Every structure is written in structure tokens, then in C-alpha cells.
Amino acid sequence: MKNITSHNHSITLRKGANDDLPEMLQLFRATIDEVGKKDYDIQQIEAWKSGAENEERWMKVIRDQYVLIAVTENQIVGFCTLDQGNYIDLLFVHKDHQSKGIASKLYHSIEKEALQHSEKKLTADVSKTARPFFEKVGFQIVQEQTVNVKGIALTNYKMVKTLSK
């Protein structure tokens, strides 16, 4: 008998495409709602989520960035994007699939991509929520910053990691 309760479905990584946008946006909003709660208040979460309304930005992400999608059983469970070869723009993991190593898998693939293009470092603007993860994979805080989104102040961190072959 197969163990039906096993949630160990394999995660596949693939490049992102235009068709993925609706599901990516859904994941983006739902994750911020759920996971951001402990670090940001309602107004801040709403402001952060409003980033999903900027269609132009997301089309640019798909067009100009290196986009990796994590899929299990035909469902997108996470994504990570690399802009200009050395800036991690987006890293989100589905709220129901947290702490399963998906972010690590995505991140390490993205780092490999950067190394293949001889990048010397990676930078990211990281939320309070994601900060422990980024620290775990070797990023350091350059500075704490306050960004204004629709008039609402959000704290995040400019972080950097020096890459070594």
C-alpha cells in the first residue's frame, strides 16, 4: 500500500513563461497575506500586495528577468527571479508549501545561473519575513531601509552575498 498521506511530491524547476503570470500573482498575494502577517500590519500588507496590480512590471519580469518556477503536481509552488544577472527581485513560496526546501532549491539554481555568468555578487531587497532565509544562504545586511508603497512605509533590507566559485 502506498502511503497516501506522504506529501513528498517531487519539485521540478522550469523557466517561467507569460502563461504563468496569473498563478504567480495569485501566489504572490496569498503568500504576503499569510506569511507577512507576523512582520507587517494590515495596511502594510495591502500596500505590499498592491504590487500585483502593476501589470507592466510583471510583464517586464517575465520578459527581461531570469524566471524560475517551482512546480509540483502541475501547481506552481514557488518562483524566484533574477534581474540584470545579479539582483534577486522576487522570491516567493506558496503559503501551503513553506519550510520544505523550495526556496533553497530555487535560490541555489539562481545562484548557479549568476555564477555561470561570472557574477561576483548577488543583491536583494529583502522583507523582514524573508530575512532569516537570506541570512541562512549567506547574505548579509548592507542597510535597513524604509520604502514607501502607496504612502505606506515598509521596512526592508538591502542585502548582499559575495559569490565564490
Results as ranks from 00 to 15, higher is better:
residue 63 R to Q: 15
residue 42 I to V: 13
residue 49 K to F: 00
residue 17 A to V: 15
residue 65 Q to T: 10
residue 37 K to M: 06
residue 81 T to R: 01
residue 74 N to H: 06
residue 88 I to F: 05
residue 85 G to A: 03
residue 51 G to L: 09
residue 41 D to L: 03
residue 93 V to R: 06
residue 82 L to I: 05
residue 82 L to G: 04
residue 51 G to T: 03
residue 77 V to T: 10
residue 69 I to C: 06
residue 44 Q to R: 00
residue 34 E to S: 13
residue 49 K to S: 02
residue 59 M to Q: 15
residue 60 K to C: 10
residue 28 F to I: 07
residue 36 G to V: 04
residue 74 N to S: 07
residue 55 E to Y: 11
residue 73 E to D: 09
residue 83 D to R: 09
residue 21 L to G: 01
residue 14 R to F: 11
residue 49 K to D: 00
residue 89 D to Q: 09
residue 76 I to C: 05
residue 56 E to I: 14
residue 42 I to R: 13
residue 84 Q to T: 14
residue 93 V to K: 08
residue 87 Y to E: 13
residue 34 E to G: 09
residue 48 W to A: 00
residue 70 A to L: 09
residue 86 N to H: 13
residue 83 D to T: 10
residue 50 S to V: 08
residue 71 V to M: 07
residue 93 V to T: 05
residue 32 I to R: 00
residue 63 R to T: 13
residue 49 K to Y: 00
residue 78 G to Y: 02
residue 21 L to C: 05
residue 91 L to R: 03
residue 89 D to L: 04
residue 36 G to E: 00
residue 39 D to S: 08
residue 68 L to W: 10
residue 14 R to K: 11
residue 37 K to Y: 04
residue 63 R to A: 15
residue 47 A to H: 03
residue 88 I to D: 01
residue 44 Q to H: 03
residue 46 E to Q: 12
residue 33 D to H: 09
residue 63 R to M: 08
residue 24 M to Q: 00
residue 30 A to R: 14
residue 74 N to K: 10
residue 74 N to P: 04
residue 94 H to Q: 04
residue 39 D to V: 01
residue 19 D to R: 15
residue 65 Q to E: 10
residue 32 I to S: 02
residue 77 V to Q: 02
residue 73 E to A: 13
residue 71 V to Q: 13
residue 54 N to D: 15
residue 55 E to T: 14
residue 62 I to K: 08
residue 30 A to W: 10
residue 55 E to I: 14
residue 19 D to E: 14
residue 31 T to D: 02
residue 82 L to R: 08
residue 79 F to N: 02
residue 72 T to H: 07
residue 93 V to A: 07
residue 58 W to S: 02
residue 89 D to N: 13
residue 27 L to F: 05
residue 39 D to K: 05
residue 92 F to W: 01
residue 14 R to S: 06
residue 39 D to A: 03
residue 49 K to I: 00
residue 29 R to P: 06
residue 88 I to Y: 02
residue 29 R to S: 12
residue 34 E to K: 11
residue 52 A to M: 04
residue 80 C to M: 09
residue 71 V to E: 14
residue 21 L to N: 03
residue 66 Y to G: 09
residue 46 E to H: 12
residue 66 Y to A: 15
residue 27 L to T: 05
residue 66 Y to W: 12
residue 40 Y to P: 00
residue 56 E to T: 14
